[in-house]
Amino acid sequence: MSPAGKLFAAAALIEGVTWAGLLVGMLLKRGLELTDLGVRIFGPLHGIAFLFYVAICLYAWIKLRWPLWAMLVALVAAVPPLVTVPLEMWFRRIGLLSARDGSAP
């Protein structure tokens, strides 16, 4: 896996973990009406992680010479909860996280 691929994998995991934290926080706040601490912590963290993931998707698209469809799928995957992690696993399996011929590592 290329350095850009590793960065994408890390961004996808971080985005997924913060999504999960935010979902738990929303359950605690709205579902169980216990505390809003999870939302107050994971809301901003997920916002930052989302923006980081989007930036890394664009970086990987350029650096790894992804086809347009791959970049669009990666961006859309950030919207529904917890989709970035299986997407990263699929991209790894089909070779999109490795340097392609003629691309910088």
Rank of each mutant, 00 (worst) to 15 (best):
L37S: 14
I94S: 11
L27M: 14
V85H: 07
K63I: 04
Y59G: 03
L75W: 10
L64E: 00
W66D: 00
L7V: 05
R30Y: 15
L37T: 15
F50H: 09
G21T: 03
L68I: 06
V54Y: 06
K63W: 07
L23D: 00
F50R: 12
G43Y: 07
I14H: 03
L13K: 03
L45M: 14
A4F: 12
M71P: 00
A12V: 03
H46E: 07
R92Q: 12
L64W: 02
S98D: 12
P105W: 04
A11N: 07
A60L: 04
L13D: 00
S98G: 12
G95W: 08
Y59Q: 05
R92I: 07
I48N: 02
G5D: 02
A77V: 08
Y59C: 04
R30K: 11
T35I: 11
L13Q: 02
F50K: 12
P80E: 06
L87M: 14
M71W: 14
G102C: 06
W61F: 13
A4P: 01
I14R: 03
L97E: 04
P81E: 01
S2H: 10
P86I: 07
W61L: 03
D101V: 09
A10V: 14
D101H: 14
L13N: 02
V54G: 04
L28A: 15
L96M: 13
G5N: 10
L58S: 06
A104N: 02
A49F: 01
S103G: 10
K29Y: 05
V85M: 10
M89H: 11
K6N: 09
G95S: 10
A74E: 04
A55G: 11
Y59K: 04
V83I: 11
P67K: 13
G16C: 12
G43K: 06
K6S: 09
T18D: 04
P80K: 11
L32A: 15
A20K: 00
L97R: 01
L87T: 06
D101T: 14
W61P: 00
F91Y: 15
L64Q: 02
I56K: 12
K63M: 07
V39F: 05
I56F: 14
L7P: 00
L22P: 01
L51K: 09
P105Y: 01
P80Q: 11
G95C: 08
